[in-house]
Design a protein around this nucleic acid. Structure first.
Lengths: 171, 171
DNA sequence: TATTGTTATACTCTATAACTATA
DNA sequence: TATAGTTATAGAGTATAACAATA
């Protein structure tokens, strides 16, 4: 598929592109954060919400996975998960293969809470885009693809995706 | 300037575009945050860095401006600024027109610290983009433009830009 | 001995409530 | 009475250090 009219575009340098990205991305992030804030239950802090969302994406994740991905230390992750376990949103078992390793999963209630909140984020952003031309929408959609391709690696744990091990026991 | 080969593109819906944005933007944000973390002086916390950067963008801003923009309460902003003033990075005077209103400015040292740190963020992102094709760079650059256009309003205080009032006195 | 996670401790960030000073 | 900011208090998030359990 031919995307651009190559005869007429003036390409951006890597540096200029990075500049623009550094300025633009936080603007979107601010809206996303606002939506999360407004739509999460009041008893869930933002860091807890992030942990909950991560466990959703990576059922069976270990505490180290959480810490590494969210960018916090192990003790902090431990305490955040403590809170989620107390609220009955996350189930913390320990792997029978390696009994040191925690195996985190959402409870039914955790899934419900996350879905209810998460569903509200996208529409908030969509409202901002409502007035854009099809061409602008296309540019944004394609840019998101490029970003996924280039930046996704940063977001994936170096460790293999944890098998959703059913050989677990409750703590 | 003709940007897209309209005959061949399949436009994204607003919803799909929002979906993609919600997934892609945090990936870039994570890299930006990492760069900030790695390049700010160790005596500056991330919230303090954000306040410092805001005062840089809005010399003469009030405490309320800081609180509203960063998304924190007035007492929190007050304490963060306290720390910056103690570190001699921010100067807090009070307007002579309205003696309740704080007037915040960077000290020479504050400017120096911010510039040194800030300069390092963009190259970190640029490194991620090094392998992209000119076409992908173009898409990212254009997307940033669209985002600026649509989302910039969210980031601007509703109040008029504070005049850099020289009629101030030290506290 | 190395790895996974927890506990202890201390500090920053954060908000709500109550207050002061100014308008 | 309303607004800008500070202070008091309490709770959450954070990291480093020390520890326990397991591999």
């Amino acid at each position: 598929m031919k995307l651009l009219d190559n005869a007429s575009i003036k390409p951006f340098s890597v540096d200029e592109c990075a500049d623009r990205l550094v300025n633009a991305v936080p603007l979107v992030m601010k809206v996303i954060r606002k939506e999360i804030r407004n739509n999460r239950p009041s008893y869930l802090s933002l860091p807890q919400f992030r942990v909950l969302a991560f466990v959703h994406r990576r059922e069976g994740a270990s505490l180290s996975d959480v810490a590494e991905h969210i960018g916090i230390t192990l003790p902090t992750a431990s305490k955040l998960v403590d809170g989620l376990v107390k609220k009955d949103l996350v189930l913390r078992k320990y792997s029978t293969c390696d009994r040191r390793r925690a195996v985190l999963n959402l409870t039914a209630q955790g899934s419900a809470v996350l879905e209810a909140s998460g569903a509200a984020i996208q529409p908030g952003v969509a409202r901002m885009l409502a007035t854009l031309s099809p061409e602008d929408l296309y540019v944004l959609g394609r840019a998101a693809e490029v970003i996924q391709h280039v930046f996704a690696g940063e977001c994936i744990s170096k460790k293999p995706f944890p098998a959703n091990n059913s050989n677990t026991k409750t703590s």
